[in-house]
């Protein structure tokens, strides 16, 4: 990660920041279980520049969007166990759509609505909008209202400059499937409210796109116990 200050292009700093956000969002999507090619995730800065900048070196965010399909293991994890009434349940995940918002001053209702509509029209199950600036209060409201149909998430480019899960003090978080969660509660004879909690707005919860009621397994490396697992319920 080298910021080329010396080259003199005023857009260089922005492009390199954007490249880091691009990389983090790809890692994030991959960590959630979607299929992404390795070379897409680990795209070098030179190639990124070649692909996504205009002639004058300014980034072209509108062509940076991408979609990803869930992997087989992810589909398995997100498929509820079959019941008598529903012997062949549909998985609760689908293709994800990621878009970089070119808007640089402010993001209002109209921009958000357009994004939501695009996701709905192409029947994406989830959508992530990466923005350079914060959303307006009402645009945020549009996001939460529509999230019942399509799961819409928003990230600031600024928040994606580093991948927080790569920090040495952040333990591994693994999302449990519905069956795993039931098994856990059964084994420890717990009600789900008796589990420790993690907030939905927690940076890691946002990274993994946790929904209310999901449980993560947190694996810490311990000097005395080797590996130590704890569980948290997303609230």
């Amino acid at each position: 990660m080298s910021d080329d200050f010396g080259s003199g292009n005023i857009h260089d700093k922005e492009v390199s920041r954007l490249w880091r956000a691009w990389r983090t969002i790809h890692e994030m999507v991959a960590d959630r279980g979607y299929e992404l090619a390795e070379e897409e995730i680990k795209m070098p800065l030179d190639e990124f520049k070649r692909k996504f900048t205009n002639g004058d070196g300014s980034p072209n965010r509108s062509i940076m969007s991408f979609s990803a399909r869930p992997s087989a293991s992810m589909i398995k994890k997100f498929t509820p166990p079959p019941t008598a009434s529903n012997p062949d349940p549909a998985p609760e995940c689908g293709t994800i759509w990621v878009e970089f918002c070119p808007e640089k001053t402010s993001i209002g209702i109209s921009v958000m609505k357009k994004f939501v509509e695009h996701c709905a029209n192409n029947s994406y199950k989830a959508g992530i909008l990466v923005t350079a600036v914060a959303l307006s209060a009402q645009a945020r409201k549009v996001m939460t209202v529509t999230s019942q149909y399509t799961l819409i998430e928003c990230f600031l480019e600024e928040d994606l400059l580093v991948n927080i899960t790569h920090h040495e003090l952040v333990p591994t978080h693994i999302l449990l499937s519905r069956e795993e969660k039931m098994a856990l509660l059964k084994r420890y004879r717990l009600k789900e409210t008796q589990l420790p909690r993690i907030l939905q707005k927690d940076p890691i919860a946002r990274y993994l796109g946790l929904k209310r009621g999901q449980v993560v397994k947190i694996v810490r490396i311990s000097e005395t116990a080797g590996r130590y697992a704890s569980y948290r319920l997303c609230v």
Binding site: S106, I107, G108, I109, S110, V111, S136, A139
Partner: peptide, 15 residues
């Protein structure tokens, strides 16, 4: 009052 400020924001978003 805060919703009114939101309205101002929203108009500003549209420049």
């Amino acid at each position: 009052p805060s919703e009114y400020l939101d309205l101002i924001d929203e108009r500003n978003c549209l420049n």
